[in-house]
């Protein structure tokens, strides 16, 4: 089920997030990282469904069954990005080695003055979008987020960086996309994750890592309406304190024809799925969709 993630509870309580923040700040990153292994073990053993979903993803991406060692590495990468999110929100980018590839792509699109949609995913850390703002401080960057389904993340952002919380656009309101359009009209950037289905009737089946999976069509519909360029975004965690950001041109303008709207939607979405697949091969440990991604 593609909506399985919505049912899957966000594990860990608000108290544990508070504690993590406290640990992150008082122990420093090396000390806090030492605690990641027991935390990984807890989550790894805590949910069989999530563990099997990740096992299945890895098998699909790498063509061999996942060992416990693989799973631990996978969970460790996830836990690392969650911990690092605390430092990013506190503005401690100095602790990291962040390589940004393709900033020129973004500059080129933004120079056209129509803003830009940054199309990302749950592969790696979407929080890295803010790293783009480091080198391009004049750019307004907003992020579309389903805060209702991620109350802990919302709490974390609000607590650590109220200014960043202001830049989040909550999905689901009648005015959500008006906010997106207004930001684009000001020449800003809006980050959207395109891999999780929110509305079952707004999704298409794409080929993904050799099997059929459902992908949301929302970003392509939006891109068509706002007529803004779309740039792909991947913020990959590379182990240690290393992150790599990739910005890649996707489309100058997604157009959906009236006559073959459904076909066009599917084609554009498949193009996205293909690029996501390519990056999954590059960094399989970064797949942070802890639910059954494929249909069957």
């Amino acid at each position: 089920m593609s909506q399985a993630w919505q049912q899957q509870q966000e594990r860990g309580s608000r108290a544990s997030i508070r504690m993590m923040t406290w640990v992150a700040q008082s122990l420093g990153r090396p000390g806090a990282r030492a605690l990641l292994y027991p935390i990984c073990a807890y989550f790894l053993l805590g949910s069989g469904a999530a563990r099997r979903a990740i096992g299945r993803f890895r098998e699909q991406a790498l063509g061999r069954p996942a060992s416990w060692r693989d799973l631990i590495r996978h969970y460790h990468a996830f836990a690392s990005t969650i911990l690092d999110r605390v430092y990013f929100l506190l503005g401690r980018f100095d602790l990291f080695e962040i390589q940004v590839h393709g900033l020129d792509v973004l500059d080129r699109e933004l120079a056209k003055g129509r803003g830009c949609v940054l199309l990302g995913s749950h592969l790696g850390s979407f929080e890295m979008v803010r790293a783009v703002g480091l080198s391009r401080q004049h750019i307004e960057i907003r992020v579309l987020m389903d805060e209702q389904n991620a109350p802990l993340i919302r709490g974390l952002i609000q607590e650590l960086n109220p200014a960043a919380a202001e830049t989040v656009i909550q999905v689901g309101g009648a005015d959500t996309m008006l906010q997106v359009k207004e930001c684009l009209d000001r020449g800003g950037v809006v980050g959207i994750m395109g891999d999780r289905v929110m509305q079952e009737d707004q999704a298409v089946v794409c080929n993904f890592l050799g099997r059929e999976a459902r992908f949301p069509t929302g970003t392509m519909r939006l891109a068509h309406v706002v007529r803004a360029p779309v740039v792909l975004f991947f913020g990959l965690y590379r182990g240690g304190n290393r992150y790599e950001v990739y910005l890649e041109s996707f489309s100058e303008g997604v157009r959906l024809s009236h006559e073959q709207r459904a076909t066009d939607l599917k084609q554009w979405t498949q193009r996205y799925a293909d690029r996501l697949e390519a990056f999954c091969h590059r960094a399989p440990d970064n797949w942070f969709n802890f639910y059954e991604f494929w249909n069957d």
Binding site: V171, A174, D175, M177, L178, K181, Q202, R221, V225, V226
Partner: peptide
């Protein structure tokens, strides 16, 4: 949905000169 709302807002702005704001 929200994308429909945006499309509608743009059409309203064009036909009636009323710009809906978030």
């Amino acid at each position: 949905d929200s994308i429909d709302a945006l499309e509608l807002a743009l059409a309203i702005s064009q036909s009636y000169g009323y710009q809906l704001r978030s």
